[in-house]
Amino acid sequence: MAETTTAPRVRRRPAVARHAGRIALGVPVTAILLFLAAPLVVLAVSSLNPTASLEFPPQGVSLRWYASVLSSPDWSVSFRLSGLLVLMVVATTTVLGTLAAYGLTRGTFPGRRLVEGVALAPLMVPEIIIALGLLYYFQGLGLLNSVPGLWLAHSLVALPFAVRTIMISAARLDPALERAAATLGAGPVRVFLTVTLPLLRPGILAGAVFAAVTSLGEVAVSVLISGANTTTVPVRVFSAVKFELDPSVAAVSTLLMLASVVVMVVVDRLTRLTEAV
């Protein structure tokens, strides 16, 4: 082992070659990101079209479609319904999801894997089957064209997201903390309320955001089980796309996008606030 076998390469590569890697990555990635953003940006911009057409780029800027949508009685009913559903769905999915996620992570009962599979299964099943299933099922139960029906359907679609997100938080929870609480004399209920839940809060809030956003945008199942009295915003957009061709639909779409962003930001602020306290 007397000689070294590799001498360092002394020539410095030209600047272009050194940056070639970054360019080779940066250009396609920028293009793909533009591709991702394009339809949404186009919609938002088209909603500002002063004329009743969707030509792009628009010939001016006008908020008339927003005004018309916000003052329209039909759209207002849909906005209220979607808003109500979000609250209801977040409530059910966070409660069911938190309990299930904790039980799946910490539990030792047989068949845990199976239950986990069932909890996440709605994600694997094509939405059209869930839609058909609920349509047929609700027909018999009189839940078609009803708020409770929509609430159940949205909760079903949103639950797997909540469970998955909260399970990540639960997996990070140090079991020693719960044991320490027990040695200090806290019974299982007190431990859960004072130690477990507060520490699961980030996951629960993230799960709540997913549930809210999912419910706000749910259309594939809702289309088949809603009716004239229970048209959520996405369902109304769906019908409007097929029949109406003015920018009011674009305006509603942009509002829907903004609503989701607001939900995310609000919850994010809450999370940071509670972490700082």
Partner: peptide, 20 residues
């Protein structure tokens, strides 16, 4: 974050006869 119907509509607008 946006409903699939919104994203699809965005493509409808993009690809329509007088779309971008």
């Amino acid at each position: 974050l946006t409903s699939v119907v919104v994203r699809s509509y965005g493509w409808v607008v993009l690809l329509s006869a007088n779309g971008a």
